[in-house]
């Protein structure tokens, strides 16, 4: 099997990579936290979270804090596993 096969297409983008990195080390991150850290627009971030959600790599929780709607994200177990595999593949490819 070629090394390149372990590179996960779902993570092959700076923003999706960033979202997963943040959710690996934080139990939760809300939409605004992701937006500030990644420095992206609402629409851009929403499309990337949707893509990861479709793969079931992250889960979305919508709730209300007071009257304000709040969307927060968490990595699923399979998302974490897939991302770890992706990091391993990257490290092998750069010859670590």
């Amino acid at each position: 099997m070629s090394l390149i096969d372990n590179i996960n297409k779902a993570f092959d983008h700076r923003i999706r990579l960033g979202i997963m990195s943040i959710l690996m080390v934080n139990d939760y991150a809300d939409f605004n936290m992701l937006k500030e850290l990644l420095e992206v627009t609402d629409g851009n971030l929403a499309s990337h979270t949707k893509a990861l959600e479709k793969e079931a790599y992250i889960k979305v929780e919508k709730q209300f804090i007071g009257r304000k709607p709040n969307t927060r994200y968490a990595a699923t177990a399979s998302g974490k596993k897939a991302f770890e595999k992706h990091i391993e593949a990257l490290e092998k490819l750069i010859g670590k």
Partner: peptide, 22 residues
Amino acid sequence: MDSNKYLEDISEIKNMMSRSSR
């Protein structure tokens, strides 16, 4: 393959992990 891109990816991962948690 372009291994520079992979290096960039790895450093982006490290950067986001530390910036979001520390």
